[in-house]
Design a protein around this nucleic acid. Structure first.
Lengths: 218, 218
DNA sequence: GTTTTTATGTGACGATTTTCACAAAAAATG
DNA sequence: CATTTTTTGTGAAAATCGTCACATAAAAAC
């Protein structure tokens, strides 16, 4: 078990997998096991063992031939790579059902991630909703600035999303998880990751239909 | 504007993009425009124009050199490719905030997609919740079977997801959108698409941090 | 200690996806 | 009508990503 050698030239897709390895390793660690094989991790997240080892290889993670990986050590190394040592504060704008669902997610805390506050233009949604305080959106800029929030979640309707992003950028936000079904434009460096649930569902429908028509016309 | 020539050898990634093109085209169509250029679509969803044209090329979509594409024709062709002519009935299991958020999504109807019903083990969540009827989970198998539902959404906690899938499979489900943060196993052909919101957020955090440390150590 | 068995680590290969670049078509211009 | 401008369509090149195969190490078995 060594330290990563080369940081650059990372496979972008390996990052979400590292996150998944970490979740699985937590469960395995809690169960008391102290060793884990690439095959275990592969099965747990539905990929091949070679893929797991390749990911590890990219980050310079070394196990023991025939001995697999020490669960605890592996966890520590992956934590270090993912870099969540320091607490990560996040805010959510748009406290409809989706925003509320995210604010309720357990497990964020375990990862050192803290959803600090929610914001909404609808006064009815303000107050304490679930686990976090919810403030009027008008206070969002001040909050982000004062608390040095770096990451925000946008869970508002399409029409309002760009305005929300603009405010976030004014506050110095550096990363956004965007659930609004529109592409957003940022005039300063900011990582924007779109999650479009409608697109996910409709794509799935295509593949289901394709599967059926392929069966009939092979 | 012609019909698709080759159906096989499709780029998997082009499907979600086609779905996005369709959304954009709907908006453009509503605005009264009748022509659209690859560049317009590219900007609207944040990719390159070459990518748009390549996607179209793959599906045999032909425009007019220098004339772009007829918005209406393009919409019709893409609809045909995505194959949503017939109504697509979907059920949701797990009517917490996330399930409810999905059930409330407008725009599904416009796409010919109909969220027919929700199910939950919690009796308090049953009845009419938002726009759809919610039944006890015990009735799920019968409902899926009787209504020939082909696609389901799983929005339950990790621990319950596999059991839900098993029931769905018994009912003959062919596609699942899984929001539970676990990998599911199916013993019959079924397209399972995972959406792990925690993984999305944590990956984003990595890239935000990476951006910062890169700035300091270029 | 020798042999067998089991997992890793990684270079090479193959497959897939995106980008590039430019010929070709047609609209626009004069 | 000739020229210019703009945009498409696509083969070819480049980049990215995943798979394979096997040498290598070490545990296990005897």
């Amino acid at each position: 078990m060594n330290l990563p050698q080369r940081i650059s030239g990372v496979n972008k897709n390996s990052i979400p997998r590292l996150v998944q390895y970490r979740h699985v390793l937590k469960r395995i660690s809690d169960s008391g096991r102290i060793r884990v094989y690439s095959n275990d991790l592969a099965e747990a997240i539905g990929i091949t063992a070679a893929q797991v080892r390749k990911d590890f290889s990219l980050f310079g993670i070394i196990g023991k031939k025939r001995g697999g990986y020490d669960v605890h050590d592996l966890l520590v190394v992956i934590q270090k790579i993912l870099g969540f040592q320091q607490g990560q504060d996040v805010v959510i704008v748009g406290m409809g059902h989706l925003g509320t669902a995210l604010s309720n997610y357990k497990g964020f805390g375990e990862e050192g991630i803290c959803i600090k506050a929610g914001f909404d233009t609808d006064a009815d949604k303000c107050g304490t909703r679930g686990h976090i305080p919810v403030y009027p959106f008008s206070e969002c800029l001040k909050y982000i600035t004062d608390h040095h929030i770096k990451v925000g979640i946008i869970a508002v309707p399409a029409g309002a999303a760009q305005k929300v992003l603009n405010v976030m950028l004014l506050g110095g936000i550096e990363g956004v998880l965007n659930f609004a079904p529109v592409h957003l434009f940022a005039d300063q460096p900011c990582v924007i990751h779109d999650v479009n649930l409608m697109v996910e569902l409709e794509s799935l429908l295509y593949f289901v239909n394709a599967l059926n028509t392929r069966e009939h016309n092979p």
